[in-house]
Simulated assay, not measured.
Amino acid sequence: MNVTEPPEPRDGDDGLNGGGDEPGDGSDRTDGGDDDGDARSDDSAGSSGGGGGGVPAGDTPESINEADVITTETEVPRRISGDTPVAAFDTVETVQTITFQTDAQVGDVQVSTIDPDTEAIDTPGVAVAVQDITVPDESADTPATIEFTIPQDRLNEIGATPEALQVFRNVDSGQEPLETTVETSGADMITVTAETPGFSVFSVNAVSEPDAAISVDAGVVETGEEITLSGINSTTEYGEIVAYEWAAGGETLTGETARTAFNEGGEYTIELTVINGAGETDTTTANLTVETGGDGTAGDVRADDGTAGDGAMADGVEQPDGFNWGVVLVIVILAILAVAGVVLARRRS
């Protein structure tokens, strides 16, 4: 039997009873049918109200079974204006609407609100809201605009400002930052809009650029002397620093601390780049002087006061350790006086 799709939009389409008023077109369904009366293909018409390619309404998707799901709501997008399907949500927290950038029919859309403090999902920065959004498989890569609303109280809890908010999408390679727009809706609510190329787990996070800081053992070292480079004083306001990358004398090092040595004297610039969980970076530098030591020239022997040349004779010949010329001079004078005394005594006799 051929089914003809009715023209859109249709008058009286309120999206509450799942479809149009003609018998046989799905109007007698109560499980989240087509709100605008569009006929759906056999593989979607048999859906029992679940999003994410057949997930039953209210069931937790397997991808977030270990997360603390607060509420779940399933809706079918309606064509509110023109041919663009829009899903609107009433019971789940933070997600208000999802506008699909397509003129094709989109099946059931399920949104699950997850506790933002959950440890089951790794989010960058500090999570303000976490949502799992599932759609039928054929719509999984459909671009869309998602509108979130964030209570100001939640921002106050973590000490964040609206300007710090950024939406991320969980992908195989990690967290993908999305184009995000933030607007203040009155004194109590923040509207955050994100453009997404597809669907998975989304999070609204407070993020910031890190602040890189370098600490070096000493500002002056000798060739071959091993030194410790430390980035332990680097900070990031939200979340944590996940990577430290060093560049020192042509060598690349990683880690919060690193050890290295220089084989040639000269002036060197140590560079540190830190990366936080949101992918934000900061770079800073420190200067280091490397002196050539042990070549036998004046100034290579250093005294306790750290000045070069204190342990060398004027002609550049190194003094033996513990040799005191003052003592020698006293001994010579005493010897001369003794000899003179002997000579004088003999003459008198």
Results as ranks from 00 to 15, higher is better:
G18E: 08
G24V: 02
D25S: 14
D25H: 15
G26D: 12
S27C: 08
G32Y: 00
D35F: 12
D59I: 11
D59G: 11
T60E: 09
T60M: 01
E62T: 14
T71G: 14
P77C: 10
R78K: 08
I80Q: 05
A88G: 08
F89P: 03
V109Y: 01
S112W: 10
S112Q: 06
G125R: 06
V128R: 04
Q131T: 10
I133S: 00
E147Q: 13
F148C: 03
T149K: 14
I158D: 03
L165Y: 04
Q166N: 09
F168C: 02
V171P: 00
S173G: 04
E179F: 14
V192M: 04
A194N: 11
P197A: 03
F202S: 02
V204C: 09
S208P: 08
I214M: 00
E225V: 02
E237H: 09
W246D: 05
G250Q: 03
E251Y: 14
N263G: 03
I275D: 10
N276L: 12
G279W: 07
A286F: 11
G299P: 07
G299E: 10
R302N: 02
A303P: 15
G306D: 11
A314M: 07
V317Q: 01
Q319P: 12
P320C: 01
P320R: 00
G322Y: 12
W325S: 12
I333C: 14
V342G: 11
